[in-house]
């Protein structure tokens, strides 16, 4: 390529498009990951079934759109309390009994939950790819030589808004402070009169509400099928480990990094190989700095 073209306006457009694509994708990844990191940070449990709740969110949006002709953004108002309830139920039925058990018991409890939910979806709704195509998924916004899908822009805006609300809730409300106190020292929190069981129930419910909302938001962009959650949750693990497990701000930065790796990797090497980049990044982070880029060193060897 001759040097004159390399710095031409077309190339600057490409950089701008890649940059904005990264931010849009990163916002959605942040909402998927923030629930995972919240549950991990406070309950010390890696929820291996997190992706399945995203998948359920996608199906809720699909059925609401197909049967009731409801737009996913309308469904969002219903899905947040719905998934909050599902989170409470899952906590009471499944998680409460293993909250103080060993890591291995916790890992296999959530893995079992993931297998059961995935295949329940397969039995109920078959393995077909289900797509939601509301009017806004066909609208393309063009600005400054860049092009974006309206659904993607709205999903980004709502995802960022929800993430910021959660962030503010954790930082400035009394309940948020109680939750952080429990995360820091479970025993001390109990001695201060905090009902930790209630805190865990609330944490799990909020985490599931976030990922359920994320599922509804991405439904116009990605097809729903029983294992649809897997790809998202795998990248959520990458995000959460990058940001330091349990660190919400880290998860937001991690989302941007993963989105950047994906967008730039797809641009240069093709979409087919995009996952390889973030898995390699993941393994590299685990080997070189397992506490995450911004996390405290040593967390990973404590086994939490």
């Amino acid at each position: 390529m001759d040097p004159a073209r390399r710095l031409g306006p077309a190339q600057i457009d490409v950089v701008a498009q890649l940059g904005v694509s990264t931010v849009l994708l990163g916002g959605i990844y942040a909402l998927v990951s923030v629930g995972l990191t919240l549950i991990f940070g406070i309950m010390r449990v890696v929820n291996f079934a997190h992706g399945e709740f995203l998948m359920l969110g996608m199906y809720v949006a699909f059925w609401a759109y197909t049967l009731l002709a409801l737009d996913p953004y309308v469904v969002l108002f219903v899905s947040i309390p719905l998934f909050f309830g599902i989170g409470v139920l899952t906590y009471v039925l499944v998680m409460r009994g293993v909250i103080h058990a060993s890591h291995n018991v916790q890992i296999f409890t959530t893995v079992g939950l993931s297998t059961a939910l995935q295949n329940a979806a397969l039995v109920a709704w078959t393995g077909d790819y289900r797509t939601v195509r509301p009017w806004h998924s066909a609208v393309v916004i063009r600005a400054l030589g860049m092009a974006f899908n309206l659904s993607q822009v709205v999903a980004f805006a709502i995802a960022v808004a929800l993430t910021l609300v959660l962030f503010a809730f954790m930082k400035w409300t009394h309940t948020g402070r109680v939750m952080r106190a429990t995360a820091q020292d479970h025993d001390a929190a109990t001695l201060m009169g905090i009902d930790t069981d209630k805190v865990y129930r609330l944490t799990f419910a909020i985490g599931i509400a976030c990922v359920g909302a994320a599922g509804v938001l991405v439904s116009p962009l990605y097809a729903a099928y029983p294992t649809a959650g897997l790809q998202f949750v795998l990248l959520a693990y990458v995000v959460v480990v990058l940001g330091g497990l349990g660190d919400m701000l880290g998860a937001m930065l991690g989302s941007l990094i993963v989105a950047a790796v994906e967008v730039v990797g797809s641009y240069f090497f093709g979409v087919a190989w995009k996952e390889v980049f973030y898995f390699v990044l993941f393994i590299a982070v685990l080997v070189l700095r397992p506490a995450g880029l911004f996390g405290q060193r040593g967390a990973e060897t404590l086994g939490v």
């Binding site: 890591h103 916790q106 795998l234 898995f279 993941f282 685990l286 080997v287 397992p290 086994g303």
Partner: peptide, 25 residues
């Protein structure tokens, strides 16, 4: 070697990532 640096869920996650890389390749 990774298992020496990572415990519990961290180790499980790294093994998932490894098998996924091989799947993609």
């Amino acid at each position: 070697y990774l298992s020496n640096r990572l415990r519990g869920p961290y180790f499980a996650l790294s093994t998932i990532a490894f098998s996924q890389v091989l799947l993609i390749v």
